[in-house]
Amino acid sequence: MLADVRQQIVNANLRYKEAADLHRREKLFQVGDLVMVRLRRERFPPGTFSKLSRRKLGPVPITAKINDNAYSVELPADCHTTSTFNVSDISPYIPADGALIAISSSESSSSEAGED
C-alpha cells in the first residue's frame, strides 16, 4: 500500500512539473554575451537601496557560466553587490538600432584619451 501511495505522489509531481514547464522559457547565454541585469532590493544591504535607484543595469558582459540557471557578469565598480545572477534576473541586450556594441574596459578608454 505504501508503495502505491508513493507512486501516486511521484506521478502527481510529474504532472505538476509538466504543467509548469509549459509556461517556462529556457534562456541560455554564452560567456561574452551582452545582457541587461535586473537589480532587486534584496541584493543590497538594508538602507543602501533607494526606490529611485536604477532597476536595470547594462549592457554588461557575462564573464562565467556557473550552470544553466546562474551566470556571473562584470558589474561596474560602483555597484556594491555580488556579480552572480539568476537567469530570471538576466535578459539579452538588444540595441535599439540593431548596431553591434563593443564594451571596453575603463583602462583602455583612459589610455586612449591620453594619446590625443
Results as ranks from 00 to 15, higher is better:
residue 79 C to W: 03
residue 2 L to P: 05
residue 106 S to Y: 05
residue 52 L to Y: 15
residue 10 V to W: 04
residue 39 L to H: 08
residue 45 P to W: 08
residue 46 P to W: 03
residue 95 P to V: 04
residue 102 A to M: 11
residue 92 P to K: 14
residue 58 G to E: 00
residue 32 G to R: 01
residue 30 Q to Y: 06
residue 103 I to W: 01
residue 83 S to H: 09
residue 83 S to Y: 02
residue 56 K to Q: 06
residue 89 D to T: 10
residue 76 P to S: 11
residue 103 I to R: 13
residue 24 R to V: 13
residue 9 I to C: 10
residue 52 L to P: 03
residue 30 Q to P: 02
residue 60 V to D: 02
residue 88 S to A: 07
residue 51 K to R: 10
residue 66 I to H: 07
residue 40 R to F: 05
residue 13 N to W: 11
residue 62 I to E: 02
residue 18 E to A: 15
residue 36 M to N: 15
residue 43 R to V: 03
residue 55 R to L: 07
residue 111 S to K: 13
residue 34 L to Q: 05
residue 111 S to D: 12
residue 40 R to Q: 11
residue 14 L to H: 07
residue 59 P to E: 02
residue 65 K to Y: 01
residue 50 S to F: 06
residue 80 H to S: 13
residue 3 A to V: 11
residue 70 A to V: 06
residue 66 I to F: 08
residue 18 E to L: 15
residue 86 N to S: 14
residue 94 I to V: 11
residue 22 L to P: 00
residue 90 I to A: 03
residue 108 S to I: 09
residue 7 Q to Y: 03
residue 71 Y to V: 00
residue 21 D to L: 13
residue 25 R to V: 06
residue 12 A to P: 01
residue 61 P to A: 03
residue 47 G to Y: 03
residue 71 Y to H: 01
residue 5 V to D: 09
residue 31 V to I: 06
residue 110 S to V: 10
residue 67 N to Y: 07
residue 67 N to S: 13
residue 36 M to C: 12
residue 73 V to G: 02
residue 14 L to V: 04
residue 107 E to I: 11
residue 83 S to V: 03
residue 113 A to F: 05
residue 96 A to C: 11
residue 68 D to H: 11
residue 59 P to R: 00
residue 58 G to N: 02
residue 20 A to L: 10
residue 55 R to S: 11
residue 99 A to Q: 12
residue 22 L to N: 09
residue 1 M to P: 03
residue 77 A to Y: 11
residue 83 S to K: 09
residue 83 S to D: 15
residue 14 L to P: 00
residue 112 E to A: 14
residue 52 L to R: 15
residue 72 S to C: 12
residue 79 C to Y: 02
residue 104 S to V: 14
residue 55 R to K: 13
residue 16 Y to T: 05
residue 76 P to E: 09
residue 68 D to L: 11
residue 8 Q to N: 08
residue 18 E to D: 12
residue 73 V to R: 00
residue 76 P to I: 07
residue 49 F to W: 14
residue 91 S to W: 02
residue 5 V to A: 08
residue 73 V to P: 03
residue 67 N to I: 05
residue 90 I to E: 00
residue 78 D to W: 08
residue 83 S to C: 10
residue 52 L to G: 13
residue 37 V to W: 02
residue 61 P to Y: 00
residue 99 A to L: 14
residue 2 L to Y: 10
residue 116 D to P: 10
residue 113 A to I: 07
residue 57 L to T: 13
residue 90 I to P: 01
residue 44 F to K: 00
residue 65 K to Q: 14
residue 6 R to N: 06
residue 64 A to F: 07
residue 49 F to D: 05
residue 37 V to N: 03
residue 39 L to S: 13
residue 6 R to L: 14
residue 59 P to M: 01
residue 95 P to H: 08
residue 64 A to C: 04
